[in-house]
């Protein structure tokens, strides 16, 4: 397969970036998208050029490390997969592929296609946890009954891998889907209810401080999410937040 790649190159966060065109040949349909970039990088290194920097880790769709805006969509044209799970058979011989970093004020570019997503870490740190007494009197979480529906909903929310595709897809660069998934996974469980009021207020405050946009309910985040996190989580977070504000 012969392709033309248009890739965002940026030396570091302080320099101006630009799109650079790279022709590439010999790409197999069974290669993953990241393997195709590996091939490109080998060619660039052989020519003595700087390889394209991009984030990756597990390459199994679990870690949430890979990103990339591919032809205008986070994680490419297929649904419910990450970039590492995208295969080159999704493209045709002769295609031009535009590859950019996830764009948001809260996701500054570090180098080429790598963005700093630590704003998500700070949202999580603001309240995405349960406080547990670990002094030796810890109660087994399974000792508290949880109804199946809530357990399933909580688990579904907890499958968010924090990749940032929701922010990348949103026209407003809103982080509502990510934050709401983290709020929901605790709000639905009895262990998480105790700190629910403080949690939602702290996480929403941090989300706003990081400079993410407002939710316009376009639903783009839900469509592009590799883990199929539902918009119901955003509605739940809005309810949680409204109830929390009435409690001072």
């Amino acid at each position: 397969m012969k392709l033309t790649l248009k890739i965002w190159r940026q030396e570091n966060k302080d320099t101006k970036g630009k799109m650079v065109t790279y022709p590439i040949d010999g790409i197999e349909g069974d290669m993953s998208f990241l393997e195709m970039l590996d091939v490109l990088n080998e060619e660039l290194v052989e020519k003595g050029e700087e390889p394209v920097e991009f984030d990756h880790d597990c390459r199994e769709g679990i870690c949430g490390m890979c990103s990339l805006q591919i032809n205008g969509e986070p994680h490419g044209p297929n649904r419910h997969i990450t970039t590492c799970q995208l295969h080159m058979r999704s493209f045709k011989d002769g295609d031009t592929i535009v590859i950019e970093p996830f764009r948001a004020k809260a996701f500054p570019v570090v180098k080429d296609l790598i963005v700093d997503r630590s704003s998500f870490d700070r949202i999580q740190q603001a309240g995405g946890y349960v406080s547990v007494n670990t002094s030796g009197n810890t109660i087994d979480a399974n000792a508290i009954p949880v109804n199946k529906h809530d357990a399933d909903e909580s688990f579904n929310a907890a499958t968010c891998i924090g990749c940032g595709a929701c922010v990348a897809a949103c026209k407003n660069a809103s982080a509502m889907l990510f934050t709401s998934a983290k709020v929901s996974q605790y709000a639905l469980l009895p262990q998480g209810r105790i700190e629910a009021v403080d949690r939602v207020k702290a996480m929403v405050r941090q989300m706003d401080e990081e400079g993410f946009g407002n939710c316009s309910n376009t639903g783009a985040c839900e469509i592009e999410c590799p883990k199929d996190i539902s918009l119901e989580n955003i509605a739940r977070m809005n309810r949680e937040y409204l109830m929390a504000t009435t409690k001072g």
Binding site: Q69, G72, A104, K105, S174, G211, N214, T218, G219, I223
Partner: peptide, 26 residues
């Protein structure tokens, strides 16, 4: 506020792939 949340626009943005025209252009 929303425009300020993305200071650098995408070169290629395929909004039609995941959302309605109405929702993007309120």
């Amino acid at each position: 506020k929303n425009r300020n949340a993305r200071t650098y626009s995408y070169v290629k943005y395929n909004g039609a792939a995941n959302s309605s025209w109405m929702s993007r252009n309120m």
